[in-house]
Amino acid sequence: MAKKAKLSDFASRLVRWRMWVQSAFLLVWLDPLGLRLHGMCGPVFHCYSCPLATFACPIGVLANFSTLHVFPFIAVGMLIVVAAVFGSFVCGWACPFGFLQDLVAKVPTRKFSLPKWTGNLRYVVLVVTVLAIPYFFGEEHPLFICRICPAGALEAALPNVAGQAIAGKSIVWPGALKMTILILIVAAMFLKCRPWCTLLCPLGAIFGLFNRISAFFLRLDPEKCTNCEQCHQLCEYGIEPEKNPNDSRCIRCLECTRCGPEALTLGSIFEQQQETTDS
């Protein structure tokens, strides 16, 4: 009987606890200790204008530093280290906006899939709204990422409006474009799994680039794969894991590792060649 590698064994047991892991990370990002460490970037898409945010948003920092024409050493350094270790595991297991989309996806509505090429829109968002527009036009431009970000609208703008209303202050309403995008994204959450992550998320685009080279990755054992395509049904994001287990659109939820033949497993570059022992 084949003995599974410790890491993949651990991962297969952890998959069913993913929501709890996401909840635990949510507590970290929501700053329960009131630390407000906004001088540092977190590795997730969580608006730092949120009344409950521990760290600064890395995408917000990239965009705002781009307006200043200053290189963001902290944000870039942190993103490279985290991406080199985990790739897009961060998206599937730690991101609070991804967690919200996972929760909404639990609502039993018919989910649609979109063509593969739509995943490349994330790079357009990254280059245009996070880097180019801030650099050339500044933060006043209506397509500056923070002005259209649905996470910012949901986590920061709406709570701030509520806070102003409760305090009896004059209300500063968020931009119409920002609110329209939020409504569209929330509506899309009922029709597609993680629409923001798979279509538009600039942070997911960065982490996805590292999927092929990150320290932890998905491994396909071609000898075990029976081409049953069970992994296609397990993957909610329209990826064909047996063809490209480290696709840049993968959020590494590890659902595909639950396939019957156990051909897909979690691997690490530090693991010795997988040993099979007969007992």
């Binding site: 200043l68 490279i80 270790v85 570059i269």
Partner: peptide, 25 residues
């Protein structure tokens, strides 16, 4: 892959430390 991972990690850590400790505007 190990070499690439080490290079990326070192590069990222160096940028991060430089940003935290030395870089000012």
């Amino acid at each position: 892959k190990i070499v690439l991972f080490c290079l990326l990690s070192l590069c990222g850590a160096a940028l991060f430390i430089y940003g935290v400790c030395l870089h000012s505007t």
